Simulated assay, not measured.
Amino acid sequence: MREGMRFAGQKGVSTDALIDALAGDLRAAPATSVRRTLALAFAFGSAVSAAAMLWLLGLRPDMATAFATPAFWIKLMFPAGLALAGLIAVDRLGRPGAPAALGYGVGIGVIAVMALLAVLQLAMAPPEALRPLLLGHTIDHCTALIMLLALPIFTAGMYAMRQMAPVRLRRAGAAVGVAAGALSAAIYAIACDETALPFVTLWYGAGILLMGLLGALLGRPLLRW
């Protein structure tokens, strides 16, 4: 910085030389520091979301039994996998030039596996069971609650992303939205007693997708720097 000021006081110094001098003292933040900021932000938002879930819904009364069923864990792994994908993308998209393909790939893989399992369950079900498998009994509030519980996580995640240097603003906002929606869906899954894989794929997926769209919409105005 002192060098830059010295250049600024000299005649005939080019703009490029002045910019180079001013930038000479800049140092990139360590990746561990950036990731710590992200981890703290998403952990704080998730804690607020979990507290809100407990206050609004409470835990399932049959939680001990649910823990012993494969359906519960498969349902939980769907949003957990998408949360991982979203967080990887958030980490990469917050740094200029960092490739985000890994996050995209993990997300596509999780969706493909869950969709395949849902289709198999529908294919093996009798015709009269198709409607309950697709619509469940909480369709009137499932997606809305996932989005509501995602708001604290989304807010904290956008704040953390603003501390970084995203250049693909819509993608960065979408990644924050997907991560927030998926973490919220994982939290909501603990209280929800729906276990049909087609229902979880459609309506949990809808909440996560809508949060991703919200993030993409708000990414440019909120993340501009």
Rank of each mutant, 00 (worst) to 15 (best):
A89H: 00
A186K: 06
A68D: 08
F72V: 00
R92N: 09
A21F: 07
L40P: 00
T65E: 11
G136I: 08
M1Q: 12
I88R: 07
L18A: 07
Q121C: 08
D193I: 07
M5W: 09
Y159A: 08
A191E: 04
M5C: 06
A21H: 06
Y104V: 07
R170G: 11
F199Q: 03
P61V: 12
L59S: 09
A144P: 05
R27E: 13
L54C: 06
K75T: 01
L218P: 11
L18S: 06
G86A: 05
A175E: 11
R6D: 15
F78I: 00
I111G: 03
L210T: 15
R95L: 10
A100P: 04
L135C: 05
R220E: 15
L84N: 02
G4E: 11
G45T: 04
P132E: 00
I111Y: 12
S33Q: 03
R131V: 14
V34D: 03
M158D: 05
I111T: 04
A51I: 13
F72R: 03
M63T: 01
E128N: 13
G94T: 02
R60Q: 09
I74P: 00
L209H: 05
F42N: 06
K11T: 09
A180R: 07
L56E: 08
M211L: 10
V48C: 10
V110D: 15
I187V: 13
L223F: 05
G205Y: 03
Y188L: 05
G109R: 10
L214F: 11
A144V: 14
I74Y: 03
R170E: 14
L117H: 09
A98G: 05
T37E: 01
A100W: 01
M5P: 03
Y159F: 09
S46K: 02
G103I: 00
P126V: 14
G215L: 09
L22Y: 15
L82W: 01
A31L: 10
R27H: 15
A83Q: 02
L213K: 02
R95W: 02
C192S: 04
Q10T: 03
L135K: 05
K11H: 11
A144E: 00
L223Q: 14
T32A: 13
G45F: 12
M77R: 10
L148Y: 15
R2L: 11
V48D: 03
L135M: 14
A31T: 15
C142M: 07
A115W: 06
V34A: 10
G24W: 02
A71W: 08
G12W: 01
P79G: 01
M164S: 11
A174D: 10
M211P: 09
R35W: 15
R6S: 07
R92D: 13
G12Q: 05
R92K: 12
